[in-house]
């Protein structure tokens, strides 16, 4: 039981997918125009994440290693289609306002990332709670961003007009999403810099996807830079090797 609680805490606070790991930015920016939309998107993703984690963990000994990514995608896409049909039937308003971003949960890095990093290697119950924890972390962050954008952009709270000040409409539109995320990133950077000054371990906090996130391209910057560096790398390694050989020869010569 303690392991399950630890998983929940991990997803909500320690490795919060949006605020700490900065994963799944497309839906985060697109649907947080209001708190209600953020909450709906978060809960839908949580349901998909929990169920797909559970099924993938059950099948982890059956799925061959080589075709695991396509298998994960099929499992995830199945649950996304299920959720899409359920929302269409029972919550048509939310379905309409989330629109194309519901089927796009399939390509959310958080889900594939958790399948690859946790569910494929761990037993069923912890995987289920890992999914729920990560999903709730995502939900809380989306709702918070939604509340901020709705409050500044429309001066309302969960759809209730407050009328305290003239709303700054741009925060509800596309540019506002970028500005709110920029602010979040800056706060994260600040915490990271302060933490590093005090000598705390801040390696967990990051901007962008880490290597276990299979379908997100942020780390491809690193990969493309790597490719460009290669030639220099080869040259410098050759130089170092040559120097080492020379030293060795000199040492041998000295011995003789």
């Amino acid at each position: 039981m303690s392991k399950s609680l630890e998983r929940l805490y991990n997803g909500l606070v320690k490795e919060n997918p949006t605020l700490v790991l900065m994963l799944g930015m497309c839906p985060t920016l697109a649907v947080t125009t209001s708190a209600y939309n953020g909450l709906g998107m978060g809960l839908t993703t949580t349901a998909v994440l929990a169920m797909s984690n559970m099924i993938i963990s059950m099948l982890r000994k059956v799925i061959p290693d080589k075709i695991r990514i396509p298998s994960f995608i099929v499992i995830i896409a199945t649950f996304v289609t299920l959720m899409q049909l359920l929302l269409q039937a029972y919550m048509p308003d939310l379905y309409k306002s989330l629109g194309i971003y519901i089927p796009l949960i399939v390509v959310n890095c958080i889900i594939l990332g958790r399948a690859e990093a946790y569910a494929y290697k761990n037993p069923v119950i912890p995987s289920l709670f890992d999914g729920i924890g990560m999903g709730l972390g995502f939900t809380v962050s989306l709702t918070l961003i939604g509340i901020v954008r709705e409050f500044i952009g429309g001066c309302s709270f969960f759809g209730n007009e407050l009328g305290w000040f003239a709303p700054v409409g741009i925060f509800k539109m596309a540019p506002g999403a970028f500005f709110v995320l920029a602010l979040l990133c800056a706060i994260q950077n600040k915490i990271k810099i302060e933490g590093a000054k005090k000598g705390k371990d801040v390696s967990k906090i990051q901007s962008g996807c880490n290597s276990d996130c299979a379908n997100c391209a942020i780390d491809c910057e690193k990969r493309i830079d790597d490719i460009e560096i290669t030639q220099e790398d080869i040259d410098s390694t050759a130089k170092i090797n040559a120097a080492a050989i020379e030293k060795e020869l000199a040492a041998k010569g000295g011995e003789k």
Binding site: I170, M173, A174, P175, G176, A177, F178, F179, L181, A182, L183, C185, A186, I187, N189, K190, I193, S207, G208
Partner: peptide, 22 residues
Amino acid sequence: PEAVKGMPMVLITAGLMAIAFC
């Protein structure tokens, strides 16, 4: 400023571009 370097600045740039594209 130190905290705005990197990703935050890119996002602010993207936001300004989004305003232009509006």
